[in-house]
Design a protein around this nucleic acid. Structure first.
Lengths: 153, 153
DNA sequence: TAGAATCCCGACCTATTTAGTCAAGTATCG
DNA sequence: CGATACTTGACTAAATAGGTCGGGATTCTA
């Protein structure tokens, strides 16, 4: 479950949108600058997140992006699954992207049984964390600041 | 931590060697046939495992491979780390392959703190399972068979 | 209603990784 | 000696990663 650069950028962007949820849209350019992400690349990523239903966009002069669903309704597992495919280390233990492997009998494959545990461990963490949780962590980690804009994501 | 084909082949090969530990060497060809792994590719992999100190080889007519250390001393974490690099989903939470990321302050990065948990979850499973454990699982999963050679790995 | 700001879309590019293949060489046993 | 195995290094095709780019479509505002 190596997270690609693309995936990390997506998480960071969604976290920015989460922190700004309720206060209108955020421009690509601002996210790119704040998070030091190549702007064109981020466009591509946000577009992808849009067609996947994670974010909404508004065009034109005062345009930008915002979360489509409430931050609490978006789990990291969902996001990463969409961007990177299976969370499981091997296809034969993936629930959402199952792919049979070449074992003669999956039910009796020792390696598979370990990978099953790995998958469960990964999913256990990522299903349990939403964008809202991420936002909470930002506040917890940085302590009480005066200005919300001071938060470093 | 997506396991590559190469990585999966390596685990399967080591499991075969684990099951045959103590009874001499096993030929590449036999492993390849039994596990349905391309023979040439497996050669490459075993060679790699050899220079990493996981296995020993014997050349010539009655040649083949065997584990270098006891099966109980080889954890899946070690194997996978050697073959695939970091177990952590991002470099900035990897203990063995740490790499700084572009966050302004890692200690206060919310995404990092989640990835830390993911890493710990993965490592927790893989450090706890050795080749010997894998062999045990093979037996557990397949029930008591008459002939050890009947075990399907 | 023009023009600036912003997102939208698809094509394109380069480097790296993945999954192998292959030929020729070296050691070992009988 | 000769058959059998491992050894070594080069090679290749396809996929993926990480971007870049040009131009089009909307929307706001003066």
């Amino acid at each position: 479950m190596k997270l690609s650069q693309r995936g990390e950028y997506a998480l960071r962007a969604l976290l920015v949108l989460g922190m700004n949820h309720g206060s209108g849209v955020v421009r690509i350019r601002d996210i790119a600058q704040q998070q030091n992400i190549p702007r064109r690349f981020l466009e591509q990523i946000l577009n992808d997140l849009k067609s996947a239903g994670f974010v909404l966009s508004k065009r034109g002069v005062a345009g930008g992006y915002r979360l489509q669903r409430a931050p609490g309704e978006i789990s990291l597992a969902d996001i990463i699954r969409h961007l990177e495919g299976p969370l499981a280390p091997v296809g034969c233990v993936s629930v959402n992207y199952y792919q049979r492997c070449s074992c003669p009998d999956e039910g009796k494959c020792a390696i598979r049984s370990v990978m099953q545990e790995v998958r469960d461990a990964i999913v256990g963490v990522l299903e349990g964390v939403s964008v809202a949780h991420l936002c909470d962590r930002v506040c917890d980690l940085q302590g009480p600041l005066e200005n919300p804009l001071d938060y470093i994501i």
